[in-house]
């Protein structure tokens, strides 16, 4: 059964519709990649799924129950965690303080730090450094660690690869695959498709607010993407 489901979701900013009925579902333990060119509405899908942006139509289902219109804070408590684009970390706070901010979940500082350092040992070595001085990949790990501190059932990742070297991106997605194996439903938004498709169980291509293609990532997807990104075939 799918843990997160979007059914016919429509969304608009200032009266301009950017999502025209999006259907998408993610099961526990599954990684779903949402791909598409710039401006297709990918980030908006995540905003709807995390409750930050209320949809103008359609439904959001969480574990089969209607969760449309629930406030982001309550969705977060229900186990939906968004790691926003551009590394959701506080650059002028140390790694420890960044993790300390997650104690609102009810877990203690020690617990959070311990599990974060166990998963990402490099963070343990940098615990007193300001997050802004970490490398891009390390900042992204910190953002992931902060997300995982909420013990999420659904993890929403926005452009994890932004500005990172390909090797670092590959390593990050290996970690994401590991997280999914523990039973978390993961929805990844990416413009750079190659890395995420190596771990994705399912892919969807969003163009101008509509899902144009959906299925198992295989060789036919490559040709599809070429046409959507570069407009060669129509």
């Amino acid at each position: 059964m799918s843990l997160l489901e979007l059914a016919g979701v429509r969304a608009a900013y200032n009266g301009i519709t950017v999502l025209h009925g999006v259907d998408l579902s993610v099961a526990a333990g599954q990684v779903v990649a949402l791909l598409g060119p710039n401006g297709a509405g990918k980030t908006t899908v995540l905003k709807v799924a995390s409750g930050v942006h209320p949809p103008s139509g359609g439904r959001l289902l969480l574990g089969g129950r209607d969760a449309t219109g629930i406030r982001p804070g309550d969705l977060a408590r229900a186990g939906v965690c968004l790691v926003p684009e551009g590394r959701g970390v506080f650059p002028n706070l140390s790694v420890r303080d960044n993790l300390l901010m997650m104690t609102f979940t009810g877990r203690t500082r020690e617990e959070i730090e311990e599990s974060a350092y166990a998963r990402f040992p490099v963070l343990g070595r940098r615990r007193t450094q300001h997050a802004g001085t970490l490398s891009g990949g390390e900042q992204q790990m910190l953002a992931l660690a902060r997300g995982l501190a909420t013990d999420p059932a659904v993890l929403l990742l926005d452009e994890l690869s932004m500005g990172l070297a390909p090797l670092v991106v590959a390593e990050l997605y290996e970690r994401v695959a590991g997280i999914a194996r523990q039973g978390v439903a993961v929805l990844v938004v990416e413009q750079f498709a190659t890395a995420v498709l190596k771990i994705a169980d399912h892919a969807a291509v969003l163009v101008r607010g509509r899902v144009q293609w959906q299925g198992h990532p295989d060789s036919s997807l490559h040709a599809e993407l070429s046409s959507y990104y570069l407009g060669s075939a129509t």
């Binding site: 977060a76 926003p84 959701g88 970390v89 506080f90 002028n92 706070l93 901010m101 902060r146």
Partner: peptide
Amino acid sequence: DDRALAGLTGA
């Protein structure tokens, strides 16, 4: 540092 992000993390 980041008012919006702080809001998301319970601050």
